[in-house]
Design a protein around this nucleic acid. Structure first.
Length: 268
DNA sequence: TTGTGTTTTATTGCCTCC
DNA sequence: GGAGGCAATAAAACACAA
């Protein structure tokens, strides 16, 4: 149960007869503000006097009272006891009425503030959404370009590799060296058996001619660590050496997930 | 005039602070 | 434990279309 001050509790309701209220409201519509305020004050006194014996009815505050309360609310939305008493005295209201008005006003303000916040959030969400769809479009364009460049590179490499094979074959024939010829043929014709030619230990090569050819072959290869790993840019299949592998560029242009670099740093 | 939706005034119950 | 704030709610007042 709410506790009221003794000063508040007596007349939270201002009792009036409804017929009288309607009459005065209609009559007041044509008056100036000052004159209406004066009438209102007179009415307050009148109602206070008759409060004890007339049926209780809610009564709306008049324009003057509401404006004064609004002005005070703008200054400070909380009400100290002294200010409450002062306002109540000035406006001819019960201190409790002033307190209730401030309380309800704060509630309305809060609702409006929530609506504003919602509007702001909604606007920023819409902007973000638009931004996202723009990025998505750009992403698609870039992915398409990558695809085109890849295709171009592949066809170019195909042309280059067939050209270099022919060149090497011609050189080996004119040299009339069976050993080197077989090695080159083996290497270019069957990639799966590369290891035997590539990893051959030079100490097993008997003739100086053979040794020379081994150097010629290994010249274009990079030997890494204990195992002989081959880097053969021209004779490698394009799909094996492609920077953008079947994993499709490490999802670099995927919009659904963050780009990962696992294909570049597999150990990580 | 009346039904209906909205706004305003006031109450209730709970919570926090001193 | 009293005072005051807040959320939820009731109820009167008001606006307005049909």
């Amino acid at each position: 149960m709410k506790r009221f001050n003794s000063s508040d509790s007596s007349a939270a309701f201002i009792s009036i007869s409804s017929s009288k209220e309607e009459r005065t409201q209609k009559a007041n519509q044509g008056y100036s503000r000052d004159f209406q305020a004066m009438l209102d004050n007179l009415e307050e006194e009148d109602y206070s006097e008759t409060a004890s014996h007339v049926s209780e009815k809610k009564r709306r505050l008049n324009l003057h009272q509401v404006k004064a309360l609004e002005k005070n609310f703008e200054v400070e939305n909380k009400l100290e006891p002294e200010r409450k008493l002062k306002l109540a005295g000035e406006l001819g209201l019960q201190p409790r009425q002033v307190a209730i008005w401030f309380q309800n006003r704060r509630a309305r303000w809060k609702t409006k503030q929530l609506e504003r916040d919602y509007g702001t959030l909604k606007a920023s969400y819409e902007a973000l959404k638009l931004d996202y769809s723009n990025l998505e479009q750009k992403n698609e364009v870039l992915a398409q370009k990558v695809k085109e460049l890849k295709a171009k590179l592949m066809s170019q490499e195909k042309a280059d590799s067939s050209h270099s094979v022919k060149e090497e074959y011609r050189v080996s024939e004119s040299d009339n060296n069976a050993s080197v010829h077989s090695k080159i043929h083996d290497f270019s014709g069957n990639n799966n058996n590369n290891s035997s030619a590539i990893t051959k230990d030079p100490s097993n090569i008997s003739s100086s001619h053979e040794l020379m050819n081994w150097f010629q072959l290994s010249d274009s290869r990079v030997i890494l660590g204990s195992r002989y790993q081959v880097y053969q840019p021209h004779l490698m299949k394009p799909e094996d050496q492609s920077l953008f592998s079947a994993e499709e560029s490490c999802n670099f242009f995927s919009v659904d997930q963050a780009p990962t670099l696992h294909c570049y740093f597999p150990e990580q």
